[in-house]
Design a protein around this nucleic acid. Structure first.
Lengths: 258, 258
DNA sequence: GAGTGGTCTAGACCACTGA
DNA sequence: CAGTGGTCTAGACCACTCA
């Protein structure tokens, strides 16, 4: 069995072989993986090649590398997994729904204490605060409450988001950022309940995101999804890429559930 | 400015320089990054070095590489971010609380239709179903509902989880796996409400995890956290590792919130 | 002190694909 | 067809750190 691999690069072949030993339980956590020199001889290839196998294995968390001691099978005491947080529009459109949005209100103000804590700034900057509902085929899909720092995005002062919602609008202007997400569950407040057409106190999935650009706060946003209309999916398959995931679901609207 | 870097490896220096151009907006999405040959000359180093800079940049999603055409600044239309899902015990202990748990019940049965759909199997296997509450200093912290495939873990047949909860017990025996997580918000059902000491319908953060080992289903688990006692935090800072994150918070218990 | 991983070099061949 | 990235080689020096 296990055809010797047709076209897969050498380093992936090695990586896969090592991953198999680990994931099969053959090598328990703490077990010492052969050194680069040993693997060179075992596989008859150069050190750079086994190094690539080992370092990608390390970056996916399957092994830990220590100078002078060697590489060891890692202890999986925390699972790290990757989630994708999508643009709301494409999320809705790719679900086969029609996208629309409505700006509920928009204000220009000096940052309140709450604004400052949300943006993680101390000085009293000017901000734009805007609240938007996004619809999937007429059905309220998510409530977006956003604060934008005018120091970071001066153009926002005169922008009323009639041609594009704040998220997309910002993405056009501030393409690459650092971000922090906080995911939680809360009961819908009266505002959210009214705008999302759900019962007050109904469970909602809330994603809060702070965004920086080279260290400077850009925007804060809270997305409130009715609990029965949205979920996040994350997959984790270390390095070996065991098999194509059956279906990379991302979000489900009510009725999509299997 | 920007001291020429003391000890940082060459490829990180290059990667950082490129990341700066991208994150500053100097190079917009779609912009063509210099080719490996051009960068070789620019930085006076070998191709392997610039290759490492570019490929790590690509794996962090900042650029897209295409043969024959070149490397291009990626469009950030979906943010991918990494969350860590921790062992419940260490999650509680690291929060400064005292950990304990109680097995509510445990049953051995042939897989029901629901069990099969949760484990993603079709045959009617034997499973262990077990429900556990985890406490943080006497306060119910999370409800764990779990199904374990006996085909994958035969020892579970006689295990009653008195010395360790199912999660830790499994981790000891099945260290490395693939997993799929689904994160959602639901109102507490009557069972969850009773055991977690919360109002029925109160918002809960729910994490469902399916676990495989080399393709074979091992376990399914649903973790129900009272919404006001838990949240997930994810950070995203592409490649440049801009700055040490102020504090890698993971979970917050009521009272920890700032 | 010796073995380990971290990094780097100056080449090489290949597959792919856009002009 | 020519330029690009993907991979690989057979060396090298270094820092670190465990024994």
């Amino acid at each position: 069995m296990s055809t010797p691999a047709k076209d897969v690069p050498r380093y992936i072949e090695i990586r896969r072989a090592l991953a198999m030993r680990i994931m099969s339980g053959d090598w328990r956590p703490g077990h010492r993986v052969p050194s680069e020199h040993e693997l060179m001889e075992q596989y008859g290839c150069s050190r750079m090649t086994v190094n690539k196998a080992l370092s990608t294995l390390a970056s996916s968390g399957l092994i830990v590398r220590k100078r002078r001691s060697g590489s060891f099978v890692a202890s999986p005491h925390s699972q790290t997994t990757t989630i994708e947080i999508h643009d709301i529009r494409s999320e809705i459109v790719s679900g086969g729904y029609e996208y629309s949005y409505a700006v509920l209100w928009r204000r220009l103000r000096n940052a309140t204490r709450q604004d400052m804590s949300r943006l993680a700034v101390t000085g009293g900057e000017r901000v734009v605060a805007v609240t938007v509902v996004h619809f999937a085929s007429e059905l309220p899909f998510v409530l977006e409450e956003r604060i934008i720092s005018l120091a970071a995005v001066p153009e926002a002062e005169s922008e009323h988001f009639v041609t594009a919602p704040p998220g997309s609008w910002l993405l056009e202007r501030i393409p690459w950022t650092q971000a922090e997400h906080v995911i939680s569950a809360v009961g819908a407040g009266d505002v959210a309940a009214a705008h999302l057409g759900i019962r007050e106190g109904a469970a909602c999935l809330v994603i809060e995101r702070k965004t920086w650009r080279s260290g400077a706060p850009v925007t804060w946003v809270r997305l409130t999804y009715p609990g029965d209309r949205h979920q996040l999916v994350a997959r984790f398959a270390p390095a070996t890429q065991a098999k194509a995931s059956p279906e990379p679901r991302k979000a489900a609207l009510r009725g999509d559930a299997s």
